[in-house]
Design a protein around this nucleic acid. Structure first.
Lengths: 201, 201, 201, 201
DNA sequence: TATGAATGAGTCTTCATTCAT
DNA sequence: GATGAATGAAGACTCATTCAT
């Protein structure tokens, strides 16, 4: 991040932008604010990114990468777990404790609502999470669990306390236990197609 | 919205602001844009609202009112239903079909993340929904269902299609059927509705 | 041009812009420079013109109006003259003595080369002049004389002295005396079509 | 334009600058744009030219050289012609068909209006042309013809079509046939070519 | 009461130029 | 010799807000 270190400087700017997004929202991202946060002159932020849009995209992309990388650990933890639902609830609880992380994810979601070009990025988290659960549930169930976790994100956003572990565990247990339609109870539809994630594409 | 009708003019401005929020996000709200959308002179927007913040707050408040008022219908429908989970899924599906409505809710959520004074407003929807479900489930379960529905909102935001009714129904059924992991303490509500899957379509 | 005089203020800005164009060229027109020349704050120049392009267009349009209005006098003088060519030469000489005027015309020509939307404006002078001469010469001859006068403009631009009256008179006399094809010498083509100004459209 | 060829690289930059001038005007010349057009790194444009002004000057100078060199052919063609006016009209027509060429000349003219140091360059074309005609007409007449041709340049700039050959021929014939209003002083050149209209097409 | 006029602050962006490597 | 990095200056434009009328 010092002089003559292009890669480092670029990264410093991106990280500063991520910080601003988490703290103040995407629309608070200005060249000046990011430059100040990164400790570089304003000119640098326009030198490394052709556009403010470009800078924001890079920042969101970086944050998404980190978040999605974190899913590897979820995957391993679930693999090793004897009670996936409880483990998932725990992981979710940890995730919701990182305000900056999930705030950034939500900013991305909101921005994606108005800017379709951000949607693939926005889907990375929710689809990644869904995919992660596939080994432990059928696709629709996995999706439902991921949706619930995103709901918990919104909940944490507007309440001072995130959802408690108990509620998370109970809900996720119930969701993961569901299958649709329940084969045992409705043997008439024994092997329904499992064509992946539905609306995900 | 015509001259000589202060109240109507004020309302026209608020509604225009809600429109702008739904379509372009909270940060796209400017006096000029709202005035243009409402078909009133720019001066009006500063005359009726001391501040832009004030105007935005009024708009979000108005939108929240409408949304919360809609919950009455949910309440009645659930009351009359023999399969609350299925009914809830159906209501949710209808809600997710109104892009402007749920987009506005999400804008409010996101703004509330950075502006605590908006949180009470933001909680109106999720708390109202939770309260609504109390007659049909224990508080934690009700909360979990409301959380799931908010998750479905995020899902709809970034996918071209909202979650399908089947997934909604399955998930909500599972959630409502769940109960706190200490069932011994709540034997008083033994017969919550558990009528199976009851697909509506 | 004082406070609270919208029309006057707008005009002051336009006139300042014309001044800047004449003195420094179209590309020297900036909000700041014009504001300084007009003695108004920068904000005013953006308040009255949505765009810098808009401001430049207004300025060029204003200058063209003035110039074209001047053609009325040319018309009357030619009408009253017993020697149109000499009179035209004299008028041209006067015109070339007004540096600001013809410089502005030339700036318009040059800008029109890159910006087609300015061409109608640019043609106003040359077409107006051509039309003016129609009573005194056939259309092609009139056009040729107008073209010559524009050439004299360029000449004046890059020489310290404009073309002397003698050269102007001689040339314009020769041009106006020409007719094409000379009916007397080529009686075979006596009444060639006179469909207006040719490429002017 | 390849590495290890300083002279070629310098020329490539100059030619790219000429291109930019012809297409977008002198004020569109920036280091970045020229570098992009030339396919060289931005640094090169500052390495080979101390200044942007320097680069522009070099480009205009280069373009003027080419244009003036082209006058040799005009000279030869006129020498060989039995009808100089018609030949001149034809040459002018060809010249006006090269948009890039005459646009560049005009850019130079316009720039020269504001930057006296460019005037010698600007005069090269018009003076060269005048000199060229001296063998075929007295100096004032030659000047008048050159002036007319520059007028035709302006005409072409703002109309979609350049002046037609007929108009050019008629006008140039008339001009070259003219002589100072004091014919008594120049009986020495009694038999300038006056072969009539001699249309080339 | 209502509104068009007015403006200073703040933002994005482009760019000439300098300089370390 | 050559060039990518770096930055401060300058310009277009938007806007919230104030205010005269």
């Amino acid at each position: 991040m010092s002089r003559r270190d292009p890669a480092g400087r670029r990264r410093a700017i991106i990280e500063a932008a991520v910080e601003v997004i988490a703290e103040n929202g995407i629309d608070a991202v200005t060249h000046r604010r990011v430059a100040a946060a990164a400790g570089v002159p304003v000119g640098s932020t326009t030198y490394y990114f052709k556009d403010l849009k470009d800078l924001v995209h890079a920042a969101l992309s970086h944050a998404t990468d980190l978040t999605v990388q974190g899913l590897d650990q979820w995957s391993q933890a679930l693999e090793a777990s004897t009670d996936p639902a409880a483990t998932l609830a725990e992981l979710t609880g940890d995730y919701l404790a990182e305000r900056d992380r999930f705030r950034t994810v939500n900013e991305l979601y909101t921005a994606a609502a108005h800017h379709p070009e951000l949607r693939p990025l926005a889907r990375a988290w929710s689809d990644g999470l869904t995919g992660l659960l596939i080994p432990h549930a059928d696709p629709h169930t996995a999706r439902a669990a991921a949706v619930f976790i995103d709901g918990a994100l919104l909940h944490a956003l507007i309440h001072d306390q995130p959802l408690d572990t108990t509620t998370l565990t109970t809900a996720l247990t119930a969701l993961l236990a569901s299958h649709e339609p329940t084969p045992a109870r409705q043997p008439a539809k024994p092997d329904q197609p499992r064509q992946g994630l539905g609306q995900t594409h």
